[in-house]
Computed example of a mutant assay.
Amino acid sequence: MRRFLDRLYRACGWIAAAFIAAICLLVSAQVLLNSIDRVSTLLTGSAIGLTIPSYADITGFFLAGASFFALAFTLNEGGHIRVSLVVHQVPPRFRRAFEIWAALAGGAAALYFTWYSSVLCYQSYLYGDVSSGMVAVPLWLPQSVMPLGLGVLSIALLDALVTLLKGALPAYAHPAQAIDTDEGALARSVLDGE
């Protein structure tokens, strides 16, 4: 199961990276077309009018895809901002309970948002909502990345909760990943209950 979950998180990270690469390609192509138009205006006095229809909308959809698919991967890699100042103020013997509470609360919030983003996506599908750009994209398509990404984040947070309940460190708090001595000490203290 561990290998499956790690592969799932990694796959989501690769999907997020692919969305970022697609944004770069799309914007670069539009900049090239704008440059050709500019040269045409200088040479002939009029622009050709080259454009990628709805490229701004599409890059926005890709950005949403990258953001939501990156959530679980970033959590698993320890890249999310954690409020260490709060954790350091918790007495050492309660840090483990605090981490369990944080994973439980985060997992519950992620499940809540997964459910409601799924409802939003389904309603967009039922009502036939489309984007308002030059290319009418059915909104359920770009909206579907929200419940997918949040669903995997929910799994990652519940995975962290189960790992903490078993007495181990979740991947995001692993001392080997924590470069700063404060974070490494915190991760070890969570397990030891220091």
Rank of each mutant, 00 (worst) to 15 (best):
F62Q: 06
F94I: 05
Q89M: 13
V83F: 15
S84L: 08
Y122L: 14
T114M: 12
A105V: 04
W115S: 07
L85V: 13
L120V: 03
Y125L: 12
T59E: 05
L104E: 00
L104Q: 02
A66K: 15
S131K: 05
A66Q: 14
D129R: 08
F69C: 14
S131G: 12
R93L: 14
L126S: 04
A110T: 02
G78M: 01
W115R: 05
E99I: 01
A103S: 10
G60P: 15
F73C: 02
R95W: 04
T114E: 07
F94C: 00
A70R: 15
F94D: 15
L85E: 09
Y122N: 09
T114G: 03
I100N: 06
L126I: 15
G60K: 04
F94G: 11
Q123D: 10
L120F: 03
G107T: 09
S124I: 02
A66H: 09
I100L: 07
H80E: 06
P91A: 10
L85I: 09
A108I: 13
I100H: 00
L126C: 09
W101S: 07
R95Q: 09
A102I: 11
G106Q: 01
L63Q: 11
L111H: 06
S67D: 10
Y116T: 08
G60E: 10
A110R: 14
S124P: 05
R96T: 03
L75V: 14
A97H: 05
S132K: 04
P91T: 12
Y116S: 09
F61E: 13
F98T: 10
S118L: 07
Q89V: 12
A110P: 00
A97F: 01
L104I: 00
R95N: 06
R93G: 01
A110H: 00
A110D: 02
A72E: 12
H88I: 08
S131I: 02
S131L: 01
F113M: 02
V90Q: 05
H80C: 14
E77C: 09
S84E: 15
Q123Y: 11
P91D: 05
A109V: 12
V90D: 03
V87N: 08
L126Y: 05
L111P: 12
V87R: 06
A103Y: 01
W115N: 00
V130R: 02
V119K: 01
A66L: 02
G65R: 05
A108D: 02
Y125K: 13
V90Y: 01
S84P: 14
H80R: 10
